[in-house]
């Protein structure tokens, strides 16, 4: 049962900068937990603290119930996939994968069996005699995965492993990582700044901002009920529209203390009727972004100037400057208070 437990973890640098400000996360056994947030939010630092590459200023990290604060990375029984893959350039693919096992004194036959098995899983069988510089980006990424897999560790750590790949390959590898993680049943912590990656991979999604956890939970639940304006703007692409309630026509009660009103681009309706208690706002079209199956209309409200995006099916043919009437049903509205918290 390799659950990973973070209790009020803090990271303070000697210059007084606090990168992680008291983060508590409980990752259940076999779960894939994704840390997502903008750059500089402390997600990578947190991952490196779990790996043992950064010291823990305060708080406690435990793996399988054992506190590992003072345990070296070597003895934590973890494997990590780095953003730049960190393959050993002077070793062949085979040796890259075998290195960790050799260091731990695994018998030769066992090493060979495990490396070949992992290579087969990742379709690297024909590349075992190559050196990293002779591989493509996608192949290097696979070798990095293979190096993590052969070790059969308690925990996998992924530090933005797909950010150096092109979009198509990234999509493929995303599915593959998810499949591998399921099959192997290894508790994983995955860091990314890509919210799409986060949404599709996570069993447990943790949205971080400025060293703190903004919201943690099931990805779809976070999507449907963002706990703050930050989460609402970060999760979902294009992001949620946020407007001043006073600039819109609202039929229905406004919650007490409401300072911002949000609705997702796909919940906006251009023509037809929104249900009782819905929102209606006038906007001027700035431009249309056709992406094929759907189009995104970028518009701004004449009153207050708030920018909005509306998703419509198919190809919208409209001239910039057209006046739109945007509606959204009451049950799809998100209310936030002045501090940015969900009401």
């Amino acid at each position: 049962m390799a659950e990973v437990d973070l209790k009020a973890v803090r990271k303070r640098y000697p210059n007084g900068m606090e990168a992680v400000k008291g983060v508590s996360i409980a990752i259940p056994d076999k779960a894939l937990c994704v840390l997502v947030g903008p750059s500089g939010c402390g997600k990578s630092t947190l991952l490196r603290m779990v790996a043992g590459l950064e010291t823990i200023s305060e708080g406690e990290i435990s793996i399988e119930g054992r506190v590992v604060n003072q345990v070296s990375p070597t003895d934590r029984d973890i494997a990590m996939v780095f953003q730049n893959y960190a393959l050993y350039p002077h070793m062949k693919v085979y040796d890259n994968m075998a290195y960790g096992l050799r260091n731990r004194g695994t018998p030769k036959a066992e090493i060979d069996r495990r490396v070949r098995e992992a290579a087969a899983t990742l379709e690297l069988g024909h590349l075992l005699d190559r050196r990293p510089r002779e591989l493509s980006g996608g192949q290097r990424q696979r070798v990095a995965m293979g190096r993590a897999i052969v070790r059969q560790p308690k925990v996998f750590l992924f530090d933005e492993p797909l950010s150096n790949l092109d979009a198509k390959l990234r999509g493929q590898m995303r599915v593959e990582i998810k499949r591998l993680q399921r099959e192997l049943g290894v508790t994983s912590l995955y860091v990314t700044h890509d919210q799409l990656e986060a949404m599709t991979l996570a069993d447990l999604l943790v949205v971080m901002n400025a060293g703190e956890v903004e919201q943690a939970g099931d990805p779809l639940e976070i999507y449907e009920k963002p706990a703050s304006i930050f989460v609402a703007g970060f999760i979902g692409a294009p992001p949620m529209n946020l407007i001043d309630p006073a600039s819109a026509e609202l039929s229905g009660p406004i919650p007490a203390g409401a300072a911002k009103l949000g609705f997702r681009p796909e919940d906006a309706i251009l023509d037809g009727f929104a249900s009782e208690g819905g929102l209606k706002i006038r906007a001027i079209l700035d431009g249309v972004e056709p992406v094929g199956a759907e189009s995104y209309l970028h518009a701004h409200a004449p009153a207050g100037g708030a920018r909005m995006i509306v998703r419509t099916a198919g190809r919208a043919r409209m001239e910039p400057g057209t006046e739109l009437e945007i509606r959204a049903p009451a049950e799809k509205l998100h209310w936030f208070d002045a501090a940015g918290r969900r009401i």
């Binding site: 790996a51 590459l53 973890i78 990590m80 730049n84 260091n103």
Partner: peptide
């Protein structure tokens, strides 16, 4: 020498 290589080696159990 990239730092991540040394870190990877540390995680790979090399003293």
């Amino acid at each position: 020498i990239p730092r991540s290589l040394i870190e990877a080696a540390a995680i790979d159990g090399a003293s």
